[in-house]
C-alpha cells in the first residue's frame, strides 16, 4: 500500500498545478474567453449556466479545458443559440462564436497555440473592422453626422457625445416628437439644423470614427513585420476607450480585449492597456 505521506487527502486535481496552468497565456485566453461567455449569455439565458460551468472548468481543471473538442462543442452550443433565437443576438455574439472556433483550431496544436490563435484573432478583427468601415462609408447618412445625431436622439447613452459636439439635451428632447411625426407620416420633413460648430464637430467625429476603424482593420490585416502592426493595440485600445466610455457593451469590450491580448502575445503593457479599457466600460456601465 502506498501512503500519501505528503498529503492526507488525495484530490482529483491539484490546486497549485491548476493555478499554475491558469496563469499561463493559454490558461488566461481560455479562462477569459469562457468568462466572457457568461456575459454573452445575456442574449440567451439558457447558455448562462453552461458558460458558468465551462468557466469553472477552465479555472479548476485547466488541463481538461485544453481539449479542442470541448471548444468545438461549446461553439456548437452557440451555433444552436443563434439558430434558435436569432433576433436576440447582436454582432459581438457572432464574433464570439468565430473566436471559440479559432481557439478550438488553435488547441489542435497546443505547442503553437498563441501563434495560431493570434493569427486567427488578427484575421477576425481585420474582417470585423473592415465590415464596420464599409457600412459607414456606404450608408449615405453617417459622414454627414445625421446617423450619429439620430442615434443620440433615440439612445440616451449617446447624449454625452452629442453634448460634446455642442448639441444640448434640451434640443434633443424638443426634436424627439417631431422626428417621431416625420417617420409616422408621408411627406413630412425635419431639418436637424445644427450650428456650424456642431455640424463640423459631428462630421469630424464621423470621419474620425471611419479613419480609426479603417486603420484598425489595416493594422490587423498587415503582416507582423509591418510597421502598421505596431499600431494594432494602441488603435484598438483607443477605439475601446472612445466607444465604451459612451456605449458600454461589456461582453464586446471583454472579447476585443482577450483577442487583442492574444494577438499581442500577452505583452505586459498591452495587457494593462486592455484591462484599463475594460475598466472604463465597467465604470461607464455602473454609472449609466
Amino acid at each position: 500500500m502506498t501512503a500519501a505521506s505528503s498529503s492526507p487527502v488525495s484530490l482529483p486535481w491539484s490546486v497549485a498545478a491548476a493555478m499554475k496552468q491558469v496563469r499561463t497565456p493559454i490558461g488566461c485566453v481560455l479562462m477569459i474567453t469562457a468568462g466572457t461567455g457568461i456575459f454573452m449569455g445575456a442574449h440567451w439565458s439558457p447558455l448562462v449556466p453552461l458558460m458558468l460551468a465551462f468557466y469553472l472548468v477552465t479555472l479548476l481543471a485547466p488541463s481538461a479545458a485544453r481539449n479542442s473538442l470541448i471548444w468545438f462543442a461549446i461553439a456548437g452550443a452557440w451555433v444552436a443559440a443563434v439558430m434558435i433565437q436569432p433576433s436576440a443576438m447582436e454582432d459581438h455574439v457572432y464574433l464570439y462564436l468565430a473566436w471559440l472556433v479559432a481557439i478550438a483550431v488553435g488547441l489542435l496544436d497546443r505547442d503553437n497555440f498563441l501563434d495560431e490563435a493570434g493569427r486567427q484573432g488578427r484575421y477576425l478583427l481585420a474582417l470585423l473592422f473592415a465590415t464596420a468601415t464599409i457600412w459607414k462609408l456606404t450608408s449615405g447618412s453617417f459622414i454627414s453626422g445625421a446617423a450619429l445625431w439620430t442615434s443620440g436622439l433615440l439612445d440616451d447613452r449617446m447624449t454625452p457625445l452629442l453634448n460634446l459636439a455642442g448639441i444640448s439635451s434640451e434640443s434633443l428632447t424638443d426634436a424627439r416628437p417631431q422626428v417621431t411625426a416625420v417617420v409616422a407620416s408621408d411627406g413630412e420633413t425635419f431639418d436637424i439644423s445644427l450650428s456650424s460648430y456642431s455640424s463640423i464637430a459631428l462630421t469630424l467625429l464621423a470621419l474620425g470614427t471611419i479613419a480609426l476603424e479603417a486603420l484598425i482593420a489595416v493594422s490587423y490585416a498587415a503582416p507582423d513585420t509591418s510597421r502598421l502592426a505596431k499600431l494594432r493595440a494602441p488603435l484598438l485600445v483607443g477605439f475601446g476607450f472612445v466607444t465604451y466610455a459612451i456605449v458600454p457593451v461589456l461582453p464586446f469590450a471583454l472579447l476585443l480585449a482577450v483577442i487583442g491580448c492574444t494577438v499581442a502575445r500577452f505583452e505586459r503593457r498591452t495587457v494593462l492597456a486592455f484591462v484599463t479599457m475594460v475598466l472604463v466600460a465597467i465604470v461607464r456601465f455602473a454609472t449609466l
Binding site: D91, Y94, T131, W135, K136, S139, F142, A146
Partner: peptide
C-alpha cells in the same frame, strides 16, 4: 442594422 451579425451599429439613420 443594429441587430444580427452585420457590425453596422450607428452607421445609418435607419
Amino acid at each position: 442594422r443594429q441587430a444580427g451579425s452585420g457590425f453596422a451599429m450607428f452607421s445609418s439613420v435607419d
